[in-house]
Every structure is written in structure tokens, then in C-alpha cells.
Amino acid sequence: MISWFNCMMAIIWREGLRFIHQKERFFSALVRPLLWLFVFAAGFRAALGLSITPPYQTYVTYEIYIVPGLCAMIQLFNAMQSSLALVYDREMGAMRLLMTSPFPRWWLLISKLLAGVSVSILQVYAFLAVAALYGIRFPAVGYVAVLPALLVSGLMLGAIGLVLSANIKSLENFAGIMNFVVFPMFFLSTALYPLWKMAESSPLLRDICSWNPFTQATEAIRFGLYGKFSPEAALWLMVYLAVFLALCLIEVRHLRNRTRSEQPAR
């Protein structure tokens, strides 16, 4: 069992080192949500009125409202970046090293997902630290209570990324993911506007948003940041996690025959 744990820790350690070596990745991961916070949210503060909805007990500024969604956005982009790295590893051959490890593939998959989540959690805390310096602070307990929500949402988003990467044949196809997955997931969620606001413009839009896994991730993080627990968000998050992990396992079973499908013979 120790060797299984060592294997997992090595995969996490490698992902961490890779992240440290790619400093620009760290900064771009921070710049993106900070732009939303400092530019977009600041501009919308006056235009957008928000009523008091749980977990808030009083009126909050738009900057405060948007932070949980931006935390989830960091995890979403990190998940997509990790899946992009998987496509790259598959094209370059590095994936073969992992695939020829004697450990079961499902264990390697879980380890790989946890590695990506660990990096994304570090990014989220770095973002929350900058937000705190800007004056957006949450109850102290919230910084700890949000951790399980970040872990589960990170795993779920990572699993989505892995399913996508298994179905992408080359790096060039990855650009489509941004248009067809990342942007719709982010905009059709409660990251930027609450559900009741969506319902005002279109009940259908509200329904789509409420079924979006990213909405549940955002809400779980939002409640967590206030030291609260949303059973609804937690339940749906776990359901989505189970579904996407199952899809991942199915994909991994078929992955080995795809690793060389583009190169028939040499």
C-alpha cells in the first residue's frame, strides 16, 4: 500500500514541479481572475444590484459575489490546462511511461487528477490572498471550510478535462474546447450572475444554468467560503463527480488503443 501512495505522491510531485518550472503558467492563472475582479467586477458594481440570497446575510458588492465563481474558473482553466498537457504528453510519448507503470490504470488516473487539483488549489489560495489584499475578505473559517469544496469541484472539472483529452486527437483540436466547453460552462453558470437574475431574462437560461456542473462547483465554493454547507450543491457535485469519473475510467480502458491509432506502423 505504501508503494501505491508513493506512486501517487510522485505524480503529484512531478505536476507540482512542472508548475513551478512554468512560472508564466502561475502568473497567467492569477492574471485571468484578477482582471475579472479588478476590471469587470469594478465596472459592473454600479450596474448590477444583487438581492440577499444564501449564503449572504446582507447586501454584498459585486466584487464579493464574483470571487467564488472566479475560484471555480481558476479550477476550470487548470483542468483544461492539465488535459491539454495530457494531449501533449500523448503526442510526445511521455504518456507511455505512465501507461507502462505496473500500477492499475485507475490508480494512475486518480493520482493524475489529484495532482492537477493540488496545483489548482494552490492557485485558488494565491488568488484569495490577492483578493484579501484588495479588501475582499471572507470569514477565517471559510478559508479552511472551502477546501473540501475545492477538492471535489477540482476533481470533477479535472475528470471532465480528462474525458475531453481522451477524445482529442491532436493539440490543434484543443482550441475548440475553449469555445465549446470553457466559455459556455463559465457564462452559463452562477459565476457571474445569480440564478434568479438569469430567470428574470429567461427561465430556460436559468434551467440550463442550474444543470451546469460548473454552477454546482461555484455554489459549493461560495457556501464553503462562508463556512457553510449547501447540501444541494454538494449532492449534485458528488453525482457529477461520479458520472465523470466513470466516464474517465471508460476512456482510460480504451486509451491504450488510441495512443498509437494515428501512427499505424513503423
Binding site: 505504501i2 508503494s3 501505491w4 508513493n6 506512486c7 505522491m9 510522485a10 505524480i11 510531485w13 512531478r14 514541479l17 512542472r18 518550472h21 510526445m92 510519448g93 511521455a94 507511455r96 511511461l97 505512465l98 507503470s101 505496473p102 500500477f103
Partner: peptide, 25 residues
């Protein structure tokens, strides 16, 4: 095809591989 991680040192690459094969530290 090369399967080494170019950003890691020789011994770091070896340690990573050892862990993937369940070898103790």
C-alpha cells in the same frame, strides 16, 4: 521517442520512474 522530463534533473527523472514502479525511497 524520448520520455524524459526535460525540466527535471537526471536523478529526479529516475526517482519519478522508481515511484511509478513502486520502489521504496
Amino acid at each position: 521517442e524520448p520520455t524524459l522530463d526535460p525540466d527535471l534533473s537526471v536523478s529526479q527523472n529516475m526517482r519519478y520512474f522508481c515511484a511509478l514502479h513502486g520502489i521504496s525511497k
